[in-house]
Design a protein around this nucleic acid. Structure first.
Length: 285
DNA sequence: GCGTATTGACTGCCTGATAG
DNA sequence: CTATCAGGCAGTCAATACGC
């Protein structure tokens, strides 16, 4: 079995059709058929069910596809490693929560882009669980995630220290009274939400009425409109607080601090582009 | 003697045609 | 749409020739 065989196998699995796979690879159909047949013969097991219109993976084929994807990724990394140079280039895919992306990353990304214009930098924002999944699937090179992660497959570097504040609409009400209002948060897995839930549990406040929102703007807008309260970083709400649209309350010390880590897979091949990106955080850690 | 270039047989991959 | 087959082509390998 060679990498070329796996490439053909992946194309057929992806297309579900030998003729289309052949076209996508620039081969003729007969060649792809023969290569798949040969692979099946070598492995002594059928990899595809032959259907009237195309092919479908057998369970053995599904298993092989998982390995084929991993091998392809490793080969890509191997190629990258041979092209490793001091001048960073290639793609760098960074993930981040909305709050970190809005406050910290514009400046960092701009500075990095100016220094290393040959790197194709992309920033994907998402919820914590989505970022972790994307890291696991090698869809991201690294991600800024709030709070400790402690996954054995991941390395993490402390990137930013944040102060969490409770926000509400501008009000005369005392902090204690605000805690009974609905909580506005991102989806499940949101680290700030866990913090607030812990705190409210300790304060014997409950049951909590939680509303989930998709964006930071939506949460702040909802809070400003009096829909409820939320827990966000002081820096992310600063503009709204300064504009008088929101009020920020200091919360107890043990819940106040939020550390944002830059997290990446331990087995990730560190390109020059990646190393230069994490350099400033490694220095300050 | 050693390293390099050339040659020919062999092998495997690819293609086009065609059958089912 | 897939499978099979014959033929062409390119790459590999061992044997041989050549130059230093």
């Amino acid at each position: 079995m060679e990498s070329g065989d796996l490439k053909i196998f992946q194309a057929v699995a992806r297309e579900g059709n030998i003729t289309k796979a052949a076209a996508s690879l620039g081969y003729v159909q007969s060649n792809v058929t023969a290569r798949i047949r040969q692979l099946e013969s070598e492995l002594n097991t059928p990899l595809f069910y032959r259907l009237s219109r195309g092919v479908a993976l057998t369970s053995a084929g599904s298993n092989l596809l998982k390995y084929a994807d991993q091998i392809t990724r490793l080969l890509d990394e191997a190629v990258k490693s041979t092209q490793f140079s001091e001048e960073p280039s290639g793609a760098l895919r960074i993930g981040s929560s909305e709050t970190t992306a809005a406050v910290h990353l514009p400046g960092i990304m701009l500075d990095y882009h100016r220094r290393y214009p040959n790197v194709k930098l992309s920033l994907i924002t998402g919820h914590r669980a989505d970022l972790v999944r994307a890291l696991n699937e090698y869809e991201l090179d690294g991600a800024f995630i709030s709070g400790p992660l402690d996954y054995p497959d991941f390395d993490e570097i402390r990137a930013f220290d944040e102060e969490l504040v409770l926000i509400s609409e501008p009000t005369e009400a005392a902090l204690r009274d605000l805690l009974t209002k609905p909580l506005l948060f991102f989806g499940k897995g949101c680290y700030h939400r866990k913090r607030l839930e812990q705190w409210l549990h300790e304060e014997n406040v409950g049951p909590m009425n939680i509303m989930e929102f998709g964006t930071l703007e939506a949460i702040m807008g909802g809070v400003a409109a009096g829909l409820g309260i939320s827990l966000l970083t002081r820096s992310s709400v600063k503009d709204w607080v300064d504009a008088g649209k929101l009020q920020a309350f200091q919360i107890p010390k043990r819940y106040r601090s939020s550390k944002v880590h830059f997290v990446f897979r331990r087995d990730l091949f560190r390109t020059s582009a990646f190393n230069h990106f994490i350099e400033p955080f490694e220095k300050t850690e």
